[in-house]
Design a protein around this nucleic acid. Structure first.
Lengths: 386, 386
DNA sequence: AAAACTTAGTTTATTGAATAGACAAACTAA
DNA sequence: TTAGTTTGTCTATTCAATAAACTAAGTTTT
């Protein structure tokens, strides 16, 4: 066990990260303000800012307002000194985005995935990445990394162990992409990526403890605890779709019984809706918008079960917020009230005081933006440690 | 937002902590070994060890075996340079322990709690603490702190918000004890303390991600994630006793329905057993030991529901281990096989590869030892930051 | 037993990061 | 013009870690 020890480089890393953080968040601001707010000495801030300027991450953008003395030189983060690629690999689509280092969208691509066989799909995915890379303007750091969200279990080394809806097993996607593009690649579950996306750019901005519930064909969850993605012992957790909410309910393919996703997912909705002659979420949304009573009842049922599961989550994690995302979040108008009611009824009062129930703000982009954020975060970790 | 910045003192704290950690874990060992294993320079280790010796935390205990050169001077942690007090405040008992800084038990006290009114009970608790303090040998640091585990919800500032079985509300125990004894006091939920106790001294030694399930009158859980106690947004989480396992099951006093603890706790067992003429866990254990079929069936039922909840926990957290503690752990012989079977059947296969199902090793001492550990950990945090 | 090697721990000079305080630059107010 | 303020840099100092030299105390080889 070789613990990482402390030395002067560590101090500099820490303080550089602090300074950069202030500039990222509060820009435009001056060296004096950073020193004031952070507690670091003026000279220290000056020196670290100079390093950041030398590293093309920060620039001076002229002088600001004087408050009775010399005018401050305002600083700004150079978001365009590098670009990140975020991919959302879905069951029947591939969505990709090129962002600057602040998560600003520069280019976007969506395509249908007709052949989910690993070889074909990975090829299509690489094509998407190449197109996005071609869109990136010239910049000091170029493409800083690639993040990919996938609908399945991913291990620590970026191997997709199991993606039931794609019928993939043991696909070493991280290695494949890293070798092909020679860039840092991060692969993670779609729900984890979505959690990160919403926490950074969406409904859960700057919330420390957040649970993202991705309601699509199945139900996945991404846990951000103490600001960081929680992963279990094996690098994957949050399979809360398979939380049993009916101890002796329907058998699930996972081996358990009464799994949440058998009652509250898109799949569950479609099964119930087939009797009424519907075969897609979109058609049901249209019918609900048109006011069809029987369809509204279906959504009420789904909303109640969503609430049951969320109440469980609230009781277990006592999070600051729960964000509902992925396809089912489109049904917000017909889910929200029954969902809130159920959660209020079932969750412990002490927890309710704090928890917020939110719907994804990024919509279909949650996962993709989270993937880009992973790449950006990886880049920052690397620069800070130089 | 004033972020703690990095300076040389921080480095020294980090490295001192590392050196102390090596001595705590690997003693007896030499300066050279610490340097070798930690990567710190020999001179650095020498200097830090000297500080620790000056601070009465470490001593030299003579020379060790030579491996072809000068004999090493072996170092050892001085566990008796301070003492900690750990208290388990139960519904009808108070248990207390005096330990040295390594968690070695020096003295122990148990008494029945006849009058659970806050004033009386707190007085009795203080008496217990005083008796234990009197048992502590003279030492450089004296009593370094007091930890108390309680059966209820505790907020960040050590106020017992709600302890249903004691009928307490808003008791500021932390403040009361701190004022009375002038010592650092930590109050936390009994399950959190139990988790810590088992993780440090019991079945879960040095396991990073561990869920402790305290099965008593109710069910509480303590979550140790990434080596640290996880607490939710409000400072309390892990109310997994109120995880709903039957969406439309029995109404629980908490407002939810089908809560786990209504099916798998001591309370649930006793309710079912009242028809058979039993009124205590102890009598049921005796009957089970005597082989009474109907009682064995009861335990099988409880074991199954315990397994259902634990499978949920495993699916949600993917922990390294689940430790079952508190009173119900005494029924291990009649619970274990059905419990394992249920968990294997219901938890996702990927998670099962890693998770261990354990029973508490410290028995009734889990919570009390965790409380002592809290006090010790607090002490170390303080010394390291000087 | 002497010489040669090994290992443990200390001493010394150096490096590098942060800092206090002095200072220069550039502004406002009166 | 003068006094006071704010911004940012420069300088000397402090302090922790480190490499390398060194002392101390052993073992192995010849």
């Amino acid at each position: 066990m070789t613990t990482p020890t402390g030395d002067q480089a560590l101090i500099k890393r820490i303080n550089t990260a602090i300074v950069l953080e202030y500039i990222l968040r509060g820009s435009p601001l001056s060296r004096a303000q950073i020193s004031e707010q952070s507690g670091l000495n003026k000279a220290t801030v000056s020196s670290l800012v100079q390093d950041l300027i030398d590293g093309s991450l920060v620039k001076e953008i002229g002088t600001g307002q004087s408050s009775g003395g010399r005018k401050p030189v305002m600083l700004e983060f150079i978001a365009t000194s590098g670009y990140a690629i975020g991919i959302d690999l879905g069951v029947n689509y591939i969505r990709g985005v090129l962002t600057d280092l602040r998560g600003g969208i520069v280019a976007e691509r969506t395509s249908s995935l007709h052949y989910p066989e690993p070889e074909v799909a990975v090829e299509q995915l690489c094509g998407c990445i190449e197109e996005l890379m071609a869109e990136a303007p010239a910049s000091p750091y170029g493409i800083v990394g690639i993040g990919v969200g996938v609908p399945g279990l991913v291990d620590e080394s970026g191997v997709i162990l199991f993606a039931p809806n794609l019928k993939w097993r043991d696909v070493p996607l991280q290695r494949q992409l890293a070798e092909r593009f020679g860039l840092p690649v991060t692969i993670d579950n779609e729900a984890n990526m979505g959690a990160l996306g919403e926490q950074k750019y969406g409904a859960g901005r700057s919330i420390n403890n957040l649970i993202y519930v991705s309601v699509g064909i199945g139900i996945g969850t991404g846990l951000i605890l103490h600001k960081i993605l929680y992963k279990g012992a094996s690098g994957f957790s949050g399979e809360m779709g398979h939380l049993s909410v009916e101890a002796h309910g329907k058998n699930c393919t996972c081996g358990n019984r009464g799994c949440w996703e058998m009652y509250a997912s898109e799949q569950a909705l479609l099964e119930q809706a087939s009797g009424l002659g519907f075969d897609s979420l979109e058609s049901l949304l249209a019918a609900a918008a048109a006011g069809r009573e029987d369809v509204l009842e279906l959504f009420t049922g789904i909303g109640e079960y969503l609430g049951i599961g969320i109440a469980n989550i609230v009781n277990v994690f006592n999070p600051d917020a729960v964000v509902i995302g992925n396809r089912m979040s489109q049904a917000r108008p017909w889910l929200e009230s029954v969902l809130r009611q159920t959660v209020v009824q079932r969750a412990l009062g002490f927890h309710l005081r704090k928890v917020q129930l939110l719907f994804a703000e990024l919509g279909e982009r949650s996962s993709m933006m989270g993937a880009a954020e992973m790449a950006i975060a990886g880049f920052f970790t690397r620069v800070k440690s130089v």
